[in-house]
Design a protein around this nucleic acid. Structure first.
Length: 569
RNA sequence: UGUCCCGUGGUGUAAUUGGCAACACGUCUGAUUCUGGAUCAGAAGAGUUCAGGUUCGAGACCUGACGGGACAACCA
């Protein structure tokens, strides 16, 4: 039984895993595996990073190796410690650990500087005095070869001197750069004498004013891998064209057979979701969301606040796999992953979001019965609870219709439904607001013989409703979230057009929702299934005096689908 | 008019390395159910972008088209 299940869930082996397995088998780098997760501390981690984290840490785990955490902090103008802490928190939350191996590219600034000096001495690097636009123009274009800089053949000693003075702060930002001397006519733009050091006078969040020159990504990343003994440097597809340069620097650096290998995989795209850190930052700065952890954000802190579990995210990542195809994954797959996880973990409770009062006219005024309800039919161990029942209860407005359509299994005049865990009731009448015509109260009678669990509860009805006793109900605010964007691929549109596709109805705040009393003391991040509605999570804004819930995801709702299809023209 | 990467049901991935295309999500039936949930059973849906070639045999290999993407930051 268990074996069958295992077989069914057998994760597919990605091409990356196959590469790694081969490398180990061939005994490359001593048959070890050592990976790294290298975020730049310039924003919060999102679910796309989760995909990378699961790979980096996952592969190391699987093959008995290690995975380092390395902050790629080579650009002090964009980075901040604020982000370092959140990144660490999010990785731990996801369930991975770098142990004592927390590194920073800035740890290697000294070594990197020395390596740059060495390249100059080997006549493989030179200082260029030209401004950015001139250098850029000389680089040519993807279809046209570049031309050499007039400074390309200046003397080693002059470059050495200038580089040192650049770092002493003698020159302005932008006035000079250090370039690797490779080839100005190769088709690969990245190999056309790439800039490897530039002057930046903004203090660095870790090294302060120690340095005036900072290495570029290409000059830091592979070398950092090398310094740390990384064997497999896994990154996303857009770095594919950087690989020859990555290898070029390693060639200059290596003193033995050891060399790290860069392998690229497809980044995560999700329908109706935007993953660009820069644009997410804009959403935050422009106040279009409440912050990085707004539950509509694809950030890990946002998903956490929304009620997603790390298990669900890991499962999702597992399902989508790693390839070289630039794919766009359906969010419904992510939603399936949370439902699957929350279904087995979450206690069921009653919460009425849009209350309508039902008065059970033949039920004694002051009587209160405690009815027993199963906390989770998927897991007996989660036990039972008691919920008070009385003469006046709230049901969902949606669950009553004065003139019901075909196949409506809920409450309507003359119709019977079961109040889950309690009795079968029959609608005998209703009261409307004289002015608006809105239904304000529904009258019912109950059948005392039909109490749940009793022997005589043989009677069958089509519909079962959730409910909350009016006098015991706890008020709550409930925030309903929908997709942030209307467009399937908001990021794939013309630059910055994504704002046009922001869904104006992505957040609905409901107040005056009625919760069963057991929820009174619930704490932030606690998760529940509100029966028949969906999965909900207590928000950070929730307090003892004011409960706030976030809807993580709706339950599948085939009735809603029927209604929707019927309304279609 | 460059170089590199990619092209398998609606979506995402598989196919033991050349042996009659499988799984998940989604969709649709039916059973069951005190959640129109979950569960269970089943169905529809691709002949692998196209055209050649190699082979007894190609989704896998070769050639060429076509389509998509990456590359011209002193960002990562």
């Amino acid at each position: 039984m268990i074996e069958e299940k295992k077989d069914e869930l057998k994760p597919t082996v990605s091409f990356i895993e196959q590469f790694i397995a081969e490398d180990i088998k061939e005994g490359k780098n001593g048959g070890r595996i050592h990976t790294r997760f290298p975020p730049e501390p310039n924003g919060y981690l999102h679910i796309g990073h989760a995909k990378a984290i699961c790979l980096d840490f996952g592969m190391a785990q699987k093959f008995g190796g290690k995975c380092n955490l390395r902050f790629d902090d080579t650009n002090p103008t964009k980075e901040d410690v604020e982000y370092v802490d959140s990144i660490k928190e999010d990785i731990h939350w996801l369930g991975f650990d770098w142990e004592e191996r927390e590194f920073y590219a800035s740890d290697y600034f000294g070594k990197l500087y020395d390596f740059a000096v060495e390249l100059i001495k080997k006549n493989l690097a030179y200082i260029d005095d030209q401004p950015a636009d001139v250098i850029s123009a000389q680089k040519g274009s993807p279809t046209q070869p570049g031309t050499e800089s007039p400074y390309r053949n200046r003397s080693v000693n002059e470059s050495l001197d200038l580089f040192e003075r650049m770092n002493n702060g003698e020159f302005d930002e932008g006035s000079r750069v250090l370039r690797a001397k490779i080839d100005m006519v190769t088709p690969n733009m990245h190999m056309r004498d790439p800039i490897i050091y530039r002057i930046i006078k903004t203090p660095h969040h870790r090294t302060g004013n120690k340095w005036m020159v900072y290495p570029m990504y290409d000059f830091a990343h592979g070398q950092s891998d090398y310094f740390e003994g990384i064997t497999h440097s896994l990154c996303t597809l857009e770095f594919e064209v950087h690989r020859p340069l990555y290898d070029w620097f390693i060639d200059q650096l290596k003193t033995s057979d050891y060399r790290p290998r860069q392998i690229e995989f497809n980044r995560l795209n999700l329908t109706y979701t935007m993953m660009s850190k820069r644009k997410l930052l804009e959403l935050v700065q422009e106040g279009r969301v409440s912050g990085w952890d707004d539950p509509r954000m694809p950030t890990l802190c946002g998903l956490r606040r929304r009620g997603y579990t790390p298990e669900a995210i890991r499962r999702f990542v597992d399902m989508i796999g790693y390839t070289k195809v630039e794919a766009i994954n359906d969010v419904s797959l992510l939603e399936h992953a949370v439902r699957e996880d929350l279904n087995i973990k979450t206690p069921r409770v009653f919460g009425v979001l849009d209350p309508l009062k039902v008065i059970i006219t033949n039920y004694p005024e002051d009587k209160v019965e405690n009815v027993e309800l199963i906390n989770n039919p998927e897991d007996e161990k989660m036990g039972k609870r008691e919920v008070p029942f009385s003469r006046e209860v709230f049901i969902e407005k949606d669950d009553f219709m004065e003139v019901p359509p075909h196949k409506f299994f809920r409450l309507a005049p003359g119709m019977e439904v079961r109040l889950k865990g309690a009795y079968i009731i029959k609608c005998t009448g209703l009261k409307k607001n004289d002015n608006t015509g809105e239904i304000v109260e529904v009258y019912c009678t109950y059948d005392p013989e039909t109490r749940s669990g009793g022997n005589s509860s043989e009677k069958k009805v089509k519909g079962t409703l959730h409910w909350v006793s009016a006098k015991h109900a706890v008020d709550a605010e409930v925030r309903l979230y929908d997709r942030l964007f209307n467009h399937e691929d908001p990021a794939g549109q013309k630059e910055d057009d994504y704002r046009k596709f922001i869904n104006p109805g992505s957040l609905k705040v409901l107040t005056g929702c009625k919760m069963e009393p057991s929820l009174k003391s619930s704490k932030p991040l606690e998760k529940f299934q509100f029966q028949r509605l969906g999965y909900f999570c207590v928000d950070y804004d929730s307090t003892g005096s004011k409960l706030v819930f976030n809807r993580t995801v709706q339950l599948k709702d085939t009735w809603a689908k029927v209604v929707k299809n019927d309304t279609k023209p």
